[in-house]
């Protein structure tokens, strides 16, 4: 659930990151995941997309839950069926003052500029082409429906993602790094978390691009330890990143699609 804080009301994610020019070259494909595919995953989705990474995003909850007038009256929506735009319109009609003050309308405004609506991780058919998503931010490069790195924003979501991948039985034989970056669910923390995730993505992509550029004489000539590829450098990269972002505790594993 996207807990919102009144003091974060003025924060608007839509224009906080300048779109940086595309350097071209090799790009890892990312996927960001939080509980409701609203706040944390969408903030980092936008950030990664603005940095020209192919990116998609999901939520692992059973339903999309947004704060309502009281703790026992949340606004609940179905995944994959309700667009950010319709949620925006509904909440605006219900109580524009409340939902503006708690930042929900700003958040939905940002989200509807990124993609159509919240998607549920467990319903994602990995490997099925995503050609109908061309208007989504960051959709270029993920047409094949697979990614290289999944970044979750809460340990519960990481657990849900891993459990789901184990459930699927790894039919695609494709390795995927699944990294949790623990971010508190409010607008302010989501902004900080988004920066942290972009830094992580840059570090990972740098290593992956270096591996592709190496092009050694042969993969089993000489000993393997002399060259380090992307996969084995990931723990080191995360370790270094963690030193830079000590307040965003990270967990990582190498899983399979």
């Amino acid at each position: 659930m996207a807990q919102t804080q009144p003091q974060a009301a003025g924060v608007n994610g839509t224009s906080s990151n300048g779109n940086r020019p595309d350097q071209g070259g090799f790009k890892l494909k990312f996927c960001t995941v939080c509980a409701s595919n609203q706040n944390r995953s969408m903030e980092s989705h936008l950030r990664l997309a603005a940095a020209n990474y192919p990116v998609i995003s999901f939520g692992t909850g059973s339903l999309v839950r947004l704060p309502g007038p009281s703790i026992s009256q949340p606004n609940v929506y179905q995944f994959n069926k309700t667009s950010y735009d319709s949620m925006y319109k509904e909440l605006e009609a219900k109580d524009p003052r409340l939902y503006r003050a708690n930042g929900l309308l700003n958040m939905l405004e940002r989200n509807r500029g990124v993609k159509w609506g919240p998607e549920r991780w467990q319903d994602w058919q990995v490997g099925v082409p995503r050609l109908e998503h061309t208007s989504d931010r960051g959709s270029e490069g993920v047409e094949g429906g697979v990614v290289d790195v999944v970044i979750t924003c809460e340990e519960r979501c990481w657990d849900a993602v891993i459990d789901d991948l184990l459930n699927r039985g790894s039919p695609l034989n494709r390795p995927v790094h699944v990294i949790n970056v623990d971010i508190k669910d409010n607008h302010e923390e989501a902004l900080i978390g988004g920066k942290g995730i972009l830094d992580l993505a840059d570090s990972l992509n740098k290593a992956a691009a270096e591996e592709r550029a190496l092009n050694p004489a042969g993969f089993d000539s000489g000993n393997a330890a002399s060259r380090s590829g992307f996969d084995e450098r990931v723990p080191e990269i995360i370790g270094e990143w963690q030193e830079r972002w000590p307040n965003l505790p990270a967990v990582w594993t190498l899983a399979w699609f």
Binding site: E236, G239, E240, Q242, E243, V251, T253
Partner: peptide, 22 residues
Amino acid sequence: MTPKIRVMVKSMEKTTRALLVH
């Protein structure tokens, strides 16, 4: 533990547990 070993140890522990819980 170096930061890298920390990440690796945590990861192996968490992954083992995730599989068993599953």
